[in-house]
């Protein structure tokens, strides 16, 4: 029963939460830059307007792949909230990301293809840490309860204290690649929010109207899912872990916005090397030590 509630809750509420988060993001960013910023609900107005606009299309297949992207992102979050297997969840996430790459590539557009290539480098950068996060939870549950599990229900129910206690390194590593996944500077190399830059709008260059709206909505779903993964580090079998998780997620979100506003975009090789280094140093060593003890 809780499974079905979780799935429905995610599908229904995630876009609202994601839109709101996006509004808050824009507001905070504006304040950090000394502007007033748009209303909190601005992202919803934007999407509504996009949905009413004409779609400029290069290739019919764009529509198929964009829908695939959205459906798989929603599926990722739904599986997560339904308490499925965390490894499976991450595999579906990767599949979704791949559809975005294909969507951008098949236009044969210079800027979209550049964005797609860079998106692939982003995937290359974050994928090891994402998988290692799943491994981290498995090892942590094995450490605290004796039997490791990838099952999300069991990860939460069998942990007497937040798993972040066992996984500080993995948490740091995940926060690092979260910047890539949330498309925040300095790692926003595949897509920019401002069309006057060297790659125009990267992967989304050739999206318009309703398709762009789909992109925005997918992004909302994805952001909510990612923050839920952050909360998984905190939530355990105790009531106080839930308010604590809310605080930690809010802090992580704020941190990402702060980083976004205080750093300039780096080259792809810096991102790749640093992400892999962080994965090896923080993630792998954390898992290794936990297995040794």
């Amino acid at each position: 029963m809780s499974t079905i509630i979780g799935i429905i809750a995610f599908i229904v509420f995630a876009p609202f939460a994601g839109g709101l988060l996006s509004g808050i993001d824009r507001k905070l960013t504006a304040r950090m830059q000394g502007r007033i910023g748009p209303p909190i609900l601005q992202p919803f107005y934007d999407v509504k307007k996009l949905l009413n606009k004409e779609i400029l299309l290069i290739n019919n297949m764009q529509i198929l792949f964009m829908w695939c992207f959205l459906v798989f992102i929603v599926f990722t979050g739904a599986l997560f909230c339904g308490g499925s297997n965390i490894l499976l969840v991450f595999f579906v996430l990767t599949t979704a990301a791949m559809f975005l790459v294909l969507e951008a590539s098949l236009t044969n557009s210079a800027y979209a293809t550049m964005g797609a290539n860079r998106e692939m480098i982003q995937m290359l950068s974050y994928e090891p840490m994402v998988l290692l996060t799943a491994v981290g939870f498995y090892v942590a549950t094995a450490f605290s309860t004796g039997t490791g599990t990838f099952n999300l229900h069991e990860i939460v129910d069998n942990s007497p204290i937040p798993n972040i206690v066992y996984l500080p390194g993995v948490f740091i590593g995940f926060l690092y690649i979260l910047t890539i996944k949330l498309r925040k500077s300095p790692f926003d190399i595949s897509m920019s929010h401002h069309a006057h830059q060297e790659m125009v709008k990267g992967v989304t260059t050739e999206l318009s109207g309703g398709l762009m709206a789909l992109m925005e909505i997918s992004h909302w779903y994805e952001n909510v899912f990612l923050l839920l993964v952050v909360s998984l580090f905190i939530i355990c079998d105790a009531w106080w872990s839930i308010p604590l998780a809310v605080v930690v997620v809010a802090a992580a979100f704020f941190l990402e916005i702060l980083i976004d506003n205080t750093s300039a975009r780096v080259k792809w090789d810096v991102m790749l090397k640093s992400a892999w280094a962080v994965t090896l140093v923080f993630g792998c060593i954390n898992v290794f030590i936990l297995q040794l003890i």
Partner: peptide
């Protein structure tokens, strides 16, 4: 797909 109103264009360059 064919029911969605679209305007075919060429890529942005």
């Amino acid at each position: 797909v064919h029911k969605i109103k679209v305007k075919p264009v060429i890529t942005y360059m």
